[in-house]
Write a protein that binds this DNA or RNA. Sequence first.
DNA 1: ATAGGGGTACAA
DNA 2: TTGTACCCCTAT
Length: 363
Amino acid sequence: MPPLAAADAFRVLEFVAGNRRVPHSLLAGLLAALPPVSPHTSPRLRKAFALRALDTALSGSYADGSGEPLRKARDVLADPGVAACFPDQLAVVRDDVAALRRLVDAEWESLPPSELELEADRIAGAGALDTWANADQGTRKKLRRLGESTEREILGKLGQDPSKAPQVDEAANAPSTSGANEDVGAQNDEVHLGREKGEVNHAHEDYARHQQKPVERTTDARIPEKPVTGAAIKGKEQATSSGVTGQAAPDRDKSHPVTGSKPGLMERKPSAIVYQWDSGDSDSERPPHQRRLPNYERKMRPPPAVPYKTRKKWTEIQERTLIEGVDKYGRGNWKDIKIAYPDVFQDRSTVDMKDKFRNLGRH
DNA sequence: ATAGGGGTACAA
DNA sequence: TTGTACCCCTAT
């Protein structure tokens, strides 16, 4: 694989780092493999690293009840660069681990969309992200089906003329000159990445072990959700990466039992930019130094990626605590139980708990 | 918020 | 195949 241009390395990192499901270990590997990227090119990236450091600190030994997580979190927050990511809320929350965790959760939730997501938005049609974000469940169900036909159309287009697809270009890391690009220039302090990578690295051995595999699914097959799932699963390999690189698989146009003849709102939308890659206007065809980086100041959250939560085996402690909690609070009071043992069930939803208890009783 | 039926993905 | 973790949906 040819080395990625810095701008593309940035895109990859910026997307991956901001996905909480991607374990630190995998990100560390990416960091090592990709050309250096400064986190200061993007608020999203900066924040993602700060949040990862906090996650690592806060995930520390929940069983012992010591103040360890808080101490570690304070260390992390002592870095002014990290603290600067949470200018307002932080003071309130400093001494309260639970509140800090909630803040971290909320901050993960409100991370701005990555450039890749914005790019997907452009491909799917202007405003698709907003449409999705504002849709209720029923509407989303419809959109998913419509998305499948749009996907086929896009892949069909790409298949017809793969050479027009965006390419990685070697010189794309030229410092910016102006405008939206002005934040690309900072290439001088990868130190921060390196340092945080270190912190991030030796955390969660157990976590990482369980996550290596699921992450593949998380990052390609699941994130695109239903519209892409068919292709993603059939092709198993990188439905998204096909989209990104423009190398369409030849057999993607198999007719779909459900959506084969469905009329498509999205595919007919005049505002759709599906054809953009064929025009002269795409990033790949403008001079490298003019490649556009996204503006991150979006108010709207990206559509929920709804990837599977990284599959994590229930520990014995968690199982025992769950049973104890049911004894104490009664079956069904999952919320109470979760609140009663916040550290144990930090990464378990009440639904997880309900399902787990159901599983426990089934043999 | 919760119950419960049902589905998917994956590992053993 | 089976067990497990997780998700989705609907009803309450």
